Amino acid sequence: MNDIFMWGIALWTFIMLGAMTIGGYFMFRKFLKRMPKEDGYSELDWQEHYIDKALPLWNNEARHLLNELVSPVPELFRDVAKERIAGRISKIALDEKADNITLDHIMKGYIIATPKRDHKFMKKKLDDMEIDYSPYEDLFQYADDEKQKFSIFEQTEKISSRS
């Protein structure tokens, strides 16, 4: 009986260490995103800035479309993904001096904000929603890539010059 109890404690210890390691990894990533860059603002500060500035440009249809596009993301990560995509969309719309957020802005922001490893799922969702993404095929090269670390807003200058 004593051996079973000791094995249970050992198993519980490994499970807890594993959970703490995984949680620490995600906390450290969030910490790095909060670190200020050369301009004194972090990636998340800029993201919030663009979302706040473009808030009047978002109509109910655009909000609903964004919610639908992020619906395949697991609920635990959905809010983070939505804010990241909304930050990109907002920056693109502000750079183009748009009066409101359109499908064009949403598609551009959605594509470059979605990591390359998730493009298969993204394309499936767009096909399910019957949204033609062929005019935006060239934007897939600017999507987030875990191997290339860059500011989440660097690509918007590249895609503005594409039009």
Results as ranks from 00 to 15, higher is better:
56 P>I: 07
116 K>W: 04
112 I>F: 05
105 H>E: 10
37 K>E: 14
15 I>A: 09
71 S>E: 10
140 F>K: 04
135 P>I: 05
116 K>V: 08
10 A>L: 13
145 D>R: 06
136 Y>W: 04
151 S>G: 15
140 F>I: 05
134 S>Q: 02
10 A>S: 08
60 N>I: 05
146 E>G: 00
14 F>K: 04
56 P>L: 01
95 D>G: 10
54 A>W: 06
126 L>G: 01
133 Y>T: 02
3 D>F: 04
51 I>H: 03
69 L>R: 07
157 E>V: 07
157 E>T: 08
142 Y>R: 02
99 D>H: 11
98 A>W: 09
6 M>T: 07
29 R>W: 07
2 N>S: 08
155 Q>A: 12
130 E>G: 02
95 D>T: 09
90 S>Q: 11
22 I>N: 03
4 I>R: 11
66 L>Y: 03
41 Y>P: 02
71 S>N: 13
83 E>H: 13
116 K>G: 11
38 E>H: 07
100 N>F: 15
48 E>C: 02
152 I>N: 05
103 L>V: 14
156 T>P: 01
117 R>H: 07
66 L>F: 02
19 A>C: 08
118 D>M: 10
96 E>W: 10
99 D>R: 08
41 Y>F: 15
103 L>P: 08
144 D>M: 14
147 K>D: 08
155 Q>C: 00
145 D>Q: 00
55 L>T: 10
4 I>T: 11
39 D>Q: 02
148 Q>S: 03
85 I>V: 13
155 Q>R: 00
62 A>P: 10
37 K>A: 15
59 N>Q: 03
130 E>P: 01
11 L>E: 12
149 K>L: 11
95 D>L: 14
142 Y>G: 03
60 N>T: 06
35 M>D: 00
124 K>S: 09
129 M>V: 03
108 K>D: 08
112 I>E: 01
17 L>E: 01
43 E>D: 06
31 F>C: 04
72 P>E: 03
31 F>Y: 14
134 S>N: 02
129 M>H: 00
12 W>M: 11
67 N>V: 13
156 T>H: 00
91 K>T: 07
50 Y>V: 11
113 A>L: 07
50 Y>G: 12
67 N>Q: 12
52 D>E: 11
69 L>M: 13
52 D>K: 14
132 D>R: 09
20 M>E: 02
114 T>L: 06
154 E>Y: 06
41 Y>A: 13
131 I>K: 03
50 Y>E: 06
94 L>V: 11
111 I>G: 05
138 D>Q: 09
78 R>T: 03
48 E>V: 06
65 L>H: 04
50 Y>F: 15
93 A>N: 10
79 D>N: 09
75 E>P: 02
15 I>F: 06
5 F>G: 00
148 Q>K: 13
155 Q>Y: 00
72 P>D: 08
118 D>N: 12
117 R>V: 15
22 I>V: 13
56 P>M: 04
70 V>M: 00
27 M>N: 06
52 D>H: 12
64 H>I: 09
134 S>F: 02
29 R>T: 10
152 I>F: 05
60 N>P: 04
3 D>S: 07
72 P>S: 03
74 P>N: 14
112 I>V: 12
161 S>R: 11
